[in-house]
């Protein structure tokens, strides 16, 4: 008889917490950079120096200079304010407004719910970015209008999540108990429903930061976002694309900045999703 072999199974170590801290810190650094960007630039990002135009990356200008001789590193750093800050503003606004609409519809049910959901269907029926371009085009360019346009295309997603979660929670026995405790509708919504539905909504919005940043840059690239001379990353790329062959660094440096920050926020979103989902972590 053969001896039974004992197999040991390697338990994968849970790295979610470590990843969360790591990406959290990276994201925080980005945000802090965008808040204090004016103090971090080696040169004045708007100072033109035509003698030094289109200079390739060197020790004095790490990312080179653009066609007017402005230091690209400074412009990328200053651009983080427009890009990161407006993205966070956009995601924050759309999360709050979408959730409000969804909870309102889910809580009231009946006709209000139907009307709200049909409206959100209408918004979802258009291809997202094309619709945003149309809205931004009608409103005219500018970062503010680009934010409004992107809010218009992205609120239905939040409204739908919030609505379906509210419908689930609405039937829970603990809400009946809260009602019997004499809590009014406002208290029930804010104290009982919101804390119980906020998890999946927060995860969605974290995952959305990367997408929104891209779409905002996309609108700016098309000339519907930030207006020159604002150093927004998307519009900078668009502006310099004629120089792609002669001075590629002018296009590449904001591109790399978008790439890195989108990646950081996406990975942070993924990590938060893993962290919030207890099934993927055990108890």
């Amino acid at each position: 008889m053969r001896e039974p072999t004992v197999r040991t199974q390697k338990i994968k170590k849970d790295t979610t917490r470590t990843r969360l801290i790591f990406f959290g810190i990276l994201a925080l650094i980005l945000i802090i950079c965008s808040v204090f960007c004016e103090y971090l630039t080696p040169y004045d990002p708007y100072l033109q120096d035509l003698k030094n135009a289109k200079a390739p990356p060197s020790l004095s200008h790490l990312f080179g200079t653009d066609r007017y001789g402005r230091d690209m590193l400074s412009r990328v750093i200053v651009g983080s304010k427009a890009s990161i800050f407006s993205t966070l503003l956009l995601v924050g606004l759309v999360t709050v407004l979408g959730t409000m609409a969804g909870v309102f519809g889910g809580w009231h049910g009946k006709r209000i719910d139907t009307v709200l959901m049909r409206i959100s269907d209408m918004f979802l029926a258009f291809p997202g970015l094309v619709f945003a371009m149309a809205v931004a085009g009608v409103l005219g360019g500018g970062l503010q209008n680009a934010i409004i346009a992107l809010m218009a295309i992205s609120w239905p997603k939040y409204a739908r999540i919030a609505r379906s979660e509210t419908l689930v929670q609405k039937e829970a026995p603990y809400l009946k108990a809260a009602r019997l405790s004499g809590s009014g509708t406002l208290k029930i919504v804010f104290k009982h429903i919101l804390p119980n539905i906020i998890g999946p909504i927060l995860v969605t919005s974290m995952l959305d930061i990367g997408t929104m940043m891209m779409e905002l840059a996309g609108l700016s690239f098309l000339g519907l976002g930030a207006k020159p001379p604002t150093a927004e990353w998307g519009s900078r790329m668009s502006d310099a694309r004629s120089l792609l062959s002669s001075a590629p660094w002018v296009t590449l440096s904001p591109g790399v900045a978008i790439f890195i920050s989108v990646m950081i926020f996406n990975l942070l979103g993924d990590t938060i999703r893993d962290y919030a989902d207890p099934k993927s972590r055990g108890r």
């Binding site: 829970a172 026995p173 603990y174 009946k176 108990a177 809260a178 019997l180 104290k191 009982h192 804390p195 119980n196």
Partner: peptide, 15 residues
């Protein structure tokens, strides 16, 4: 006042 059939679910999991 009422006592519910399912004790655990009659309390808000977040409170």
């Amino acid at each position: 006042q009422m006592v519910f059939q399912t004790p655990a679910e009659s309390f808000d999991p977040r409170c």
